[in-house]
Amino acid sequence: MAFKKYVLIALLLFKIGSCVAYDHPGGMHPQQQLDFVRKQVKAKKQPYWDAYRQLIVYADSAWYHPIEALADFSVPGYYVDAVMHRKNSKSLNTNAFDAYACALAWQLSGELKYADKSLEILNAWGATNTLYSDADGSLVMAYAGSGMLMAAELLYGYQGWTEADKKQFDRWVETVYRKACNEIRNRSNNWADWGRFGSALCAQFLNDEQEIAENTRLIKSDLFHKIAPDGSMPEETKRKANGIWYTYFSLAPITAASWVIFNATGENLFTYSQDGRSIKTALDYLHYYSLHPSEWKWFPNPNKGSAQSWPGNLLEAMSGIYRDKEYGTYVQASRPLIYPTHHFAWTFPTLMAVSLDIYR
Results as ranks from 00 to 15, higher is better:
Arg86Pro: 01
Phe262Trp: 09
Glu235Asn: 08
Lys304Val: 12
Asp170Ala: 12
Trp310Cys: 06
Asp208Ala: 07
Trp346Gln: 11
Leu34Gln: 11
Gly137Asp: 03
Leu149Cys: 07
Thr265Cys: 10
Leu119Cys: 03
Ala82Glu: 13
Asn301Pro: 02
Ala180Gln: 05
Leu122Arg: 01
Val7Asn: 08
Leu351Arg: 04
His225Tyr: 07
Lys39Trp: 00
Leu92Trp: 02
Tyr58Pro: 01
Gly320Asp: 13
Arg86Glu: 15
Val260Arg: 12
Asp35His: 11
Glu211Met: 14
Thr237Met: 06
Asp136His: 11
Ala333Pro: 01
Ala317Asn: 06
Gly147Tyr: 07
Ala96Met: 07
His292Val: 08
Gly27Ala: 12
Ile219Tyr: 08
Ser232Ala: 12
Ala101Asn: 14
Thr350Phe: 03
Ala115Trp: 09
Asp98Asn: 15
Gly17Ser: 15
Leu283Asp: 06
Ser146Met: 03
Lys226Tyr: 11
Gln107Leu: 02
Asn268Gly: 12
Asp35Leu: 13
Glu267His: 12
Asp35Met: 10
Trp49Asp: 05
Ala151Cys: 10
Leu8Gln: 14
Ile219Thr: 10
Ala69Ile: 05
Thr347Cys: 13
Glu153Pro: 03
Leu108Gln: 00
Lys39Cys: 01
Trp259His: 04
Gly110Leu: 08
Gln33Lys: 15
Asp170Leu: 10
Glu153Lys: 01
Pro30Trp: 05
Lys166Asn: 12
Ala124Pro: 02
Thr162Gln: 07
Pro293Ser: 13
Tyr339Ile: 09
Asn88Gln: 14
Val37Glu: 00
Gly137Ser: 05
His343Trp: 02
Asn263Met: 14
Val260Met: 13
Phe249Ser: 10
Glu316Gly: 03
Ile358Asn: 13
Arg335Glu: 13
Gln159Val: 08
Leu218Lys: 14
Ile358His: 14
Phe224Gln: 04
Trp194Met: 09
Ala345Ser: 14
Gly266Leu: 05
Met150Glu: 10
Pro76His: 12
Ser89Gly: 14
Ser278Asp: 06
Trp106Lys: 00
Tyr64Glu: 12
Gly145Phe: 00
Met141Ala: 10
Gly145Gln: 01
Gln332Trp: 09
Ser309Val: 10
Asp284Arg: 09
Leu70Met: 15
Gln210Tyr: 11
Phe169Tyr: 15
Pro253Asp: 04
Gln33Met: 15
Gly137Glu: 03
His24Arg: 11
